[in-house]
Design a binder for these strands. Sequence first.
DNA 1: ATCATGACCTGTTAGC
DNA 2: TGCTAACAGGTCATGA
Length: 298
Amino acid sequence: MPELPEVETVRRGLLSSFEGATITEVEQRRPNLRFPFPDDFIACLADRKIISLSRRAKYLLADLDSGAVLIMHLGMSGSFRIEAGSTDPLMPGAFALDRSKDDKHDHVVFHLKTASGAPTRVIYNDPRRFGFMLLAARAELDSHPLFAAIGLEPLGNALDGATISRLFAGKAAPLKAALLDQKLIAGLGNIYVCEALWRSGLSPKRQAGSISGKSGRTTQRTENLARHIRETLEEAIEAGGSSLRDHRQADGTLGYFQHRFKVYDREGEPCQKTECNGIITRIVQSGRSTFYCPTCQR
DNA sequence: ATCATGACCTGTTAGC
DNA sequence: TGCTAACAGGTCATGA
């Protein structure tokens, strides 16, 4: 499912359940997702309080009162849903056993007592199991293998034309591939790269280094690209992300940025750029679909 | 070092 | 209707 805007939308949807909540129980229903769960997964989470829920690139980070951080990645098909607490009248404080909504791909269930005292379940579902959950010490997070070499946060202040120029200078890889490289800029995925390139009028096939200036100096092209990346992501977050294939946010609502795609999944449609008569085309780059307009993206 | 590809999984859809 | 192939929002390990 998720690129940066979707992960950010998930984070916001989980905030009221997670922040300040105490984890009363964790059900880990299989030994692994993409990676094995840590041996002490349950032990490290049980009875801990969640201090905050933040995001880095496409990762969700839940800080615990123990100084540990729960690292969560949704892969391609991960999602959370919240089932707020109807308590069992016969067992006050306990959940009525309503398993009717359970799915075979519900892999982790967090039982929470929220900051306001209400019992809630937050359920992680992931059919393809490309997602994962790991633990790390907060103090060592930046040196964790997942984060040691991770690239810029595209909505942070560091992303500007000069930085893209420097990062891409000398790169022979296609511009599309460079933008997907999480070691350069972290958080972009297939959809938003296609959209940002269309807005920037840049071909995904162009060599990444070709938009940098001499010795990596900033150019109009990298300035534009930086601006369009930010605008695309900001608009998508504003719209609640994109909901493909009825994928829902944690509170059950749908994002609607998919209706604003200009190129993604629009093969054969006319280009929407003013005065452009091009047709949106699908090509495959490093094994993945790229959608772009060969007429106005050069 | 850089780049492209296959692998990891399951589910959905298009086409015969 | 049923079967098969292609494809899906990510990223890691491989080999050229």
